[in-house]
Amino acid sequence: MNRITELFKIKYPVIQAGMIWNSGYKLASAVSNAGGLGIIGAGSMYPEVLQEHIQKCKKATQKPFGVNVPMLYPNVEEIMKIIVDEGVKIVFTSAGNPKTWTSFLKEKGITVVHVVSSSVFALKAEAAGVDAIVAEGFEAGGHNGRDETTTFTLIPMVKEHIKIPLIAAGGIATGRGMLAAMVLGADGVQVGSRFAASVESSAHENFKKTIITVKEGDTQLTLKELAPVRLIKNKFYQDLQELYEKCPTTEELSQFLGRARAKKGMFEGDLIEGELEIGQVAGLIHEIKPAAEILLEIMNDFEDARKEVTKFDF
């Protein structure tokens, strides 16, 4: 056992990221049943939909699972009430001030983890009383930090400042990546893109098939003026770049983005006009597989890499 497996009462220190339009109860329960920590992504769910997914997840697994809550959404109070009422034991918060909800959740006996993109925010989260930190490098898909700090440099920097358990995220899809993160100081890893391309992911098949065709350089971090997001360079992205050439205002960017662009791309499968959020590591993902098989593959690769490291002799 290590600090993460002990904290969450799981077999492997691997957390499946709570990705919007990808992380429903089927994926969360599959990862939990396989020995990791499955996470339901509340960011793409109305409160009543989230409640349904939590209830279905409780029926689909007897193992621990959690819910990721981006705190920027207007119905966050209703979401937190559902989480408490349904007896969820683990909550990952993101996109907001950890002080807002940590005490409330902790008082209910809930383990709280906060996602950060810098050492400064990691310290604030620790001071707020969270149980662990996810430090996410800018290689990650979806909404991201503005500082563009890579995972390779972020993890040891955060480790230097905090005492609570540290989970590395961003650019991790293999056991070798997991080992590298843990050598740098992480106690566990959070994996997003690899599970987005799983059988149980709630993403559209068009999006899953696109993920496994992504190559190096096919994603970009953009829309920093609104909320930085890494996405695939499709027509929507190219049209956005043309707009940037005209030096748009924040209002013009917001109007261009419109509503439900991520849903259109990842959930409805519109590969042309939709927002296709995925990490740089998608270039290493070549097959759509069941979540349990992915997790086992990661752990086997981790063990192989760990044995190889012991052979280095200088």
Rank of each mutant, 00 (worst) to 15 (best):
K9Q: 06
E287M: 06
S103I: 03
K263D: 10
A140G: 15
L27M: 14
G265F: 11
A28L: 11
L240E: 00
M182G: 05
F236E: 02
M157K: 00
M182V: 02
L154V: 08
I79K: 15
I82A: 05
I15Y: 06
V14C: 01
D131F: 09
G41F: 10
A262N: 11
I298L: 08
P165D: 13
P165G: 04
V31A: 14
K263I: 09
R261N: 10
E242Y: 09
R261I: 15
R146F: 03
G141P: 08
P290C: 02
E160V: 08
E303M: 05
V214F: 01
K224W: 01
W21V: 03
I54V: 10
Q238K: 12
E200M: 06
Q51E: 11
E308P: 01
V189D: 10
A180P: 09
L276T: 11
E126W: 07
M1G: 10
A135L: 01
R259G: 08
A60F: 07
Y25E: 06
T153V: 13
L50N: 07
L284S: 06
A260I: 05
T250Y: 09
Y12W: 00
M157A: 07
S119L: 04
R230E: 08
K233A: 05
H114G: 04
E136N: 03
A30I: 08
Q241G: 03
T100G: 07
L223Y: 04
G96T: 07
F267V: 06
V191P: 00
Q51R: 15
K235H: 08
Q280M: 08
T151M: 01
D301Y: 05
E308R: 07
Q255G: 06
K63M: 14
